[in-house]
């Protein structure tokens, strides 16, 4: 079974985000770049499916600048077979649909039975790219999956919904997105890291994929970031004083009721 993982490189979640001078992007200096945490689950799940099936190939597909190679190499060191990086300035600065169009075009050249992606990227938080890729390819999608099982030409997915889960059956080829809880991603081993250096990693541009640059990236964006700002600073409130834990609790309840009026 051939599996493609859509992977994005994002700032580590412990990174302090700073807004750049243009007010529409973030400062990229001093950022620690990592594989999007939800995409790590996707890589792990793809590897497990391949191992269970005993055959096939796991390809990592990324849109991003040169530095994203590092994220692809990490996934290759975990055990993926090949990487494809679409690195083109014209693909940058766009919206989710633009990125999905680039990925879908690349996927028309890569054989796949299954596409796996993280449920969202923790930088843009768009929650849109995987669903849009599935829509452009005309295949089934299942979001926020915590368990899956391949059965012949189908995949059974347990997906999270509000207040519970739902089991959904999808015809292959299909795309599903991974939610925390589906697995514990493995660490890249030292031999894995050595092997990864020799694994194929192709770099492509929009021209290679036959994409008109005006339709994607910043030029083709239907959602434009006009400005970024920090959420209003919460001013530190009051520390409740009291002789005993009980007295402090009583004062808190009084404040929540009389001042905040939330209970």
């Amino acid at each position: 079974m051939d599996i493609v993982v859509l992977l994005k490189q994002v700032p580590d979640t412990e990174t302090l985000i700073q807004i750049a001078a243009d007010k529409t992007s973030i400062k990229t200096e001093d950022v620690k770049w990592v594989i999007n945490p939800y995409d790590e689950f996707a890589v792990e799940e793809a590897l497990r499916i391949k191992e269970a099936q005993g055959e096939g190939k796991v390809t990592i597909l990324t849109v991003g600048p040169e530095r994203a190679i590092e994220a692809i190499r990490t996934a290759l060191a975990m055990g993926a077979d090949e990487g494809v990086l679409i690195d083109d300035p014209a693909a940058e600065g766009g919206d989710a649909l633009g990125t999905a169009k680039v990925l879908a075009a690349a996927l028309r050249e890569i054989p796949y039975d299954l596409i796996v992606a993280g449920q969202r990227a923790v930088d843009d938080d768009y929650y849109q790219v995987p669903a849009a890729v599935a829509a452009f390819l005309g295949i089934a999608q299942v979001s926020m999956v915590i368990k899956e099982e391949i059965q012949d030409e189908k995949i059974l997915c347990e997906r999270t919904i509000e207040g519970g889960t739902m089991v959904v059956e999808a015809q292959l080829p299909a795309l599903f997105t991974t939610q925390k809880g589906i697995n514990e991603p493995r660490y890249a081993s030292l031999p894995g890291i050595m092997k990864a250096k020799k694994k194929p990693l192709a770099k492509k541009t929009l021209a290679d994929l036959g994409i008109n640059p005006s339709e994607v990236g910043e030029a083709g964006a239907k959602c434009r970031v006009m400005s970024l700002s920090f959420p209003p600073e919460r001013s530190p409130g009051k520390i409740i004083e009291g002789e005993t834990p009980e007295a402090k609790a009583a004062e808190l309840v009084r404040l929540l009721r009389e001042e905040a009026k939330v209970i």
Binding site: L97, Y127, Q128, P130, A131, A135, I161, E162, A221
Partner: peptide, 24 residues
């Protein structure tokens, strides 16, 4: 609504309609 189902639906629909969507 950007519920779990709403996110799934709106993302797919925006691609089908090829139109801009702001999530959440």
């Amino acid at each position: 609504g950007a519920s779990t189902r709403g996110k799934d639906l709106s993302a797919r629909l925006s691609a089908r309609l090829d139109t801009g969507l702001a999530m959440d």
